[in-house]
Structures are given as C-alpha cells and as structure tokens.
Write a protein that binds this DNA or RNA. Structure first.
Lengths: 194, 194
DNA sequence: AGCCGTATGATTACAGTGTCAACATCCGAT
DNA sequence: ATCGGATGTTGACACTGTAATCATACGGCT
C-alpha cells in the first residue's frame, strides 16, 4: 500500500526549538534571496509554522533581525580571531582586514543586515575587541591606539561596503587581495611595527 | 543645500512639476522620518496626488529612490569640491574626508539610501572623480594612484558608516574632527606630499 | 474658434507585509 | 489527574507596491 508520507518529520504541535530554527531559516532566506526575500512570514513559512508563531520568541521582526545579526557578528569574530592568530604584527592586522572583506563578500546580505541599521545597546562587539587588541599592540607615535583601531576598522569596513555596492569593480579574490594590500600599506606606515 | 534644478524641468500639465516635487517630497520624508517613513504612497500623499501618479514619472519605487540618491550624490560632489578647493595637498584630502563624514552625519538617511543598495550602471560618480583627482596628485611610492584613491574613499566611507550605525560613539563635530585627524595622518604617511 | 490625441492623474483591485486580539493545544509541576 | 503557563493558530486590520482600467485637460491641429 502506498502510504502518503507526512513522514519527513513527526509533526508535533510544539516545535522543538523554534527560536533557533527561525534564526537559521532567516539566515537561509538571506543567503538565498537577499534582504528583500526576508519577511517574517516567509521565515515562519520556512519553519512550517504560522505567521504569528515567531512573536512568541521575538518582540517583532526587528528583534529577529537583531538575533540574526548577532549570529553574523559571532561568525565574523571567529574568522577575525583565526586570521589574526595565523600571523604576527602588521601582517596580522592585514590578515584581519582581508578576512573582514572576505566575510562581507561571501555573505553580502548578512553583512548589510549586520551593519546597515542603527544599532542600539552597547557598541562593544567581540569582533571590535579582537581588532582593538591587535591595533593597540601596534600603536606607535603616528597614531594612538584608539585612532588606529577606528582607522583600521573604517578602512576595511568602507572597502567592504563599497565592494558590496559594486562601487569598486572587484570580486572575490581580487577584492581580498586589494584589502590585504591596502591594510598592509596602512599598517606599515602608521604603526610602530612598520 | 539640496536645491531643485530647473534646467532639466519637464513639461508641466496638471500638477506643475510632479517629478521634481516627488523627489523633493521624498527627500523631506527621508530627513524627517528616516527610510522607514519613505513609502511611495506617502510621497504621493505629500504631493497631494494619487498613489499611482508617481508611476507616470518613475518606473517604480526603486527608480524614484535612485533619483533621490542621484540628488544626494550631486550635493556630496559639490561639498567635496568646495572642501578640496579650500586647501592644498594633503590638507585638501583631509578636508574632503571631513566633508564626506560631515555630509553623512547631516543626512544619515540619505547617505544610507545613496550607498546601502547595490548600484547598477557605471560606477563613476562625480564625487569619485573629485577624490580621484586629488589622490592622483598625491600618489607617491607608498601607494599607486588607484590604491590611494580607493583606500582614502574606503577610510572615510567606513568611518561615516560606522558613525551612522552608532558603532563609533561620536557625534557632529567630534566625528568631523576624528575624520580630519585620521585622514590627515593617512595623507601624511601614505602620500608623496607628506 | 473648436476638436482630439495623448500625456497626465484617479480609481479600483490584488497579493503581500507586520502585528494585534482572541482562541487552541500541549507540557510540566502539583 | 489536573491546572496554569508556555507555545502555536486563526482571523483581522492597516499598511505597502503595483497592474489594469478609466477620466481629464493641455496644446497642436484645422
């Protein structure tokens, strides 16, 4: 006998871990169709749940988006940390810069979601602290630690944003190479380690 | 200030110059309530016109937004030009940087609208050319003209974006001062004119 | 003058969105 | 076994962008 399969998943009224599933689904939609494809209802649909269900876990759409962004920041921080650990001195700063731009190129919609909204709450993110630590170690007479951190961050953040908006006609590896080159020149001339 | 150009005015039948009025109204809504307040219907409403009227002048919402962004770019270019003309050498580059950040701080929603969307069509904007001209004049052994232009643009663009997102706890004049300081240090160390 | 094509604007309609209110269901502590 | 609270559903509302269709009035024509 042919059984109609509702069997992909035993459907329970209560979803196992809806909150996490919603964030994951939102990330998928973001990667697949950009920010335009990310509607609260579509996320709920992707989780096989009603349009109002997300409200049991998030105050609203913005709240969900913030959770998605938080995941993005965690991922970014991990990549910066890894890049930084693989080199030393100015090279490490350049590696962080390249990793930053690479992340943006690989997850353009997520990157936009993370940054292109006014953030509330304390600004100090893990990613910032990783950069700050490296920059502080490199600070010299040319620039203080804080200015150096901000300048380095601005440099790679701006480059990433311009590439994402196609205002700099570069893609993938060429973008990463440019980021490394610029950051390295920056580090060489503006830090004590140069 | 952003002024209505009458040189490219259109034939006015019913409303007067609806196309220009729509762009102006969109700018007003943007300044007043941010991007969230900028709906096509609200723009039409502000012009005392039906919701479909804008479609006689723009292909759709995105097209209107592009026209608004174009006005923003024209204004930005004018400010960069003025800032550049008021100084020389590395000081001029720093002045451009400060003007760039100042523009972003004064028109945050417009700035986001201008940049935080993938742009189609040729990238060469007037603002870019102004920066490029100055950077090319300053290029030295440390960095070529193109890299220097991109780096300088990235630096101020990133700084502006981070300030707008409140990731850098600065406002108004402090932001401008930081921009000038960083750009100046950048110019002093990475150009021939330093 | 008066007519008429057409550029312009208005109405209506539809699918889609975020979110509120009220109701249904299930899990876990008692 | 029961009951309360956590979780999910249904229906509704005010929005949005936009396609199709209808109405108007400007300006060149005779």
């Amino acid at each position: 006998m042919i059984t109609v399969s509702t069997s992909d998943r035993e459907r329970t009224y209560h979803h196992g871990d809806l909150r996490a599933a919603l964030v994951a689904a939102a990330l998928d939609l973001l990667e697949a169709g950009g920010e335009a494809a990310l509607s609260l209802r579509a996320v709920a649909r992707a989780c096989g749940v009603s349009a109002m269900a997300p409200y049991r876990h998030f105050a609203g759409k913005e709240d969900l988006l913030e959770a998605v962004a938080a995941r993005g920041f965690a991922d970014l921080a991990a990549r910066l940390e890894a890049a930084d650990a693989a080199a030393e001195g100015g090279e490490a700063l350049a590696a962080q810069g390249a990793a930053y731009v690479t992340f943006a190129c690989r997850h353009p919609a997520l990157f936009r979601l993370m940054f292109m909204r006014p953030c509330r709450g304390p600004v100090g993110s893990e990613a910032y602290r990783i950069l700050e630590r490296r920059a502080a170690a490199l600070a010299g007479p040319a620039m203080g630690a804080e200015d150096l951190t901000l300048a380095a961050w601005s440099l790679v953040h701006g480059l990433a944003a311009l590439i994402l908006d196609r205002r700099v006609p570069l893609e993938g590896e060429a973008a990463e190479a440019l980021a490394r080159r610029i950051t390295l020149a920056f580090a060489a001339r503006l830090t004590a380690a140069g």
